[in-house]
Write a protein that binds this DNA or RNA. Sequence first.
RNA 1: UGGGGCGUCGCCAAGCGGUAAGGCACUGGGUUCUGGUCCCAGCAUCCGGGGGUUCGAAUCCUCCCGCCCCAGCCA
Length: 562
Amino acid sequence: MAGDEIQTPSNFIKHIIEEDLKNNKNDGRVHTRFPPEPNGYLHIGHAKSICLNFGLAAEYNGLCNLRFDDTNPIKEEQEYVDAIIEDVKWLGFDWGERLYYSSDYFSQLYSYAVRLIEDGSAYVCDLSADEIREYRGTLREPGRESPYRNRPVDENLDLFERMKNGEFPDGSRTLRAKIDMASGNINMRDPVIYRIQRAAHHRTGDEWRIYPMYDYAHCVSDSIEGITHSLCTLEFEDHRPLYDWFLERLRIFHPQQIEFARLNISRAVMSKRKMLKLVEEGHVNGWDDPRMLTLSGLRRRGYTPASIRNFCERIGVAKASSTVDMALLEYCVREDLNKRAPRVMAVLRPLRVVITNYPETQTDELEAINNPEDPDAGTRKVPFSKIIYIERDDFMEDPPKKFFRLAPGREVRLRYAYFITCRDVVRDESGAINELHCTYDPETRGGDAPDGRKVKATLHWVSEAHALAAEVRLYDHLFNTEDPDNSGDGADFRTCLNPDSMTVLDGCLVEPSLSGAGPGSGFQFERLGYFSVDPDSSDERPVFNRTVTLRDTWAKIRKNKK
RNA sequence: UGGGGCGUCGCCAAGCGGUAAGGCACUGGGUUCUGGUCCCAGCAUCCGGGGGUUCGAAUCCUCCCGCCCCAGCCA
């Protein structure tokens, strides 16, 4: 269970449920389901649906099933089933014993199909796929009836059974619903409900040679499970008449299908097809690449389940197609990580600093707060010595007006340590800054001056003798346009790929307390952002992924200047 | 004159006839050993447009405009 007992915002689906509850529809039951097809990985769009379905059930004292919609064996695999289960669990939801598969209902589905044939509502059609398409008509023109439409019931029954027995080749015949070839709704023009496919199914093996289509299998599965509110995305709105048609003909329990808008996020693509392309063409390193908005990618990036749940809560649920600003997703991780991530010091682009008046062999152990937002997190000791490293960005030889970090002659504070003053800039032969010579004030140990003098900046740092070398991977948006799906002039979404979406930094230095941090653990590198230990990490070579930067007012000032 | 939906602040989104919630973003200011967090303030006289009903409309009626989805034996 998601665990947040916050009052969730109102939306049109809740209105419907509350109305149903008031009228004692379904005996006051609320039962939803999350029905993924095991043909790919879950992404944040699925998270919206997961949070909605499980969230609604929890809020109204109902139940939510996890059901795999596995009616197409040629696309589906056990590997995906396993990954999806892991992702839904990770997100924080529990379906109890109610893990189901549409394939659990294949026999029932078959019997119901026989019933449809018996009462004249379905027929076996010998048209080929191309012919069916031709007969279907167009958006403007009605279709034509199949020559097999009025086959006698007995013949349909016989043929359907033989389809099941594998007597006919793939694609040679279909079972079709007899509805209305002139309907303005193309889904009602005698849709196919069973097709012949001799493919092995990941769960039923070669038991079946015919497989039901989504429209037929889904409503019946919902009905069998006693689902009261069947939530799906907008593109299925046109399918609702068909959903209702099957259940009415079959005279079985009739759940209500309700459609809501799918999630889109700026600077990202959300379709499985496009994500697959990114993976296959090597624009990213697999489905769990930290730049992907798959749940596995977000997890590797360092996003927490709570942050994703909060995000799904904040975006709301409605019927208007919309695109949520990526900034909201980022806000949600920061919000969560701010509360729970231990603070630590790490220098990404090191600049060597020699404290000239600090004793050669001395080491200080300074006390640092683990998390100012969480007093229970305690403190730790951080070693300090004569040679340290600071961030290159924290020093400017010729600083502009608003820059108040280190500069020649200027005094700043080293976090939890001492005030230092920059005395000399040391260069190499090429003139590049090599290191800084600074002096420290022993009186300022811990970070405060007894005389009460102030400094304008506090810098993070790391001691040369004690630091751990690490690799840090910085990520940015995968796309550099707001809407890569519609990049204008019919340009492909791949033309909008951000070439700088990943920057690998070598030679980063992190404080020694990070030694042994396990994959998945998250930290705030003070003043930089939140970082998560990558699975590629080892004791010899820690690897961190930047989840998200801290809000950076200084960067904003600089940007506004330009 | 195919069918189905949707249009409230830059981005989401409440609102359901009684006179525009909230969040993100943005802008100012305060606190601060993270230019982080936190705090305070600002940010739609207006709800795609026109008519109409009403004492009163974003909410009802009507016409128009714009956007999205549908012609898989995919889901």
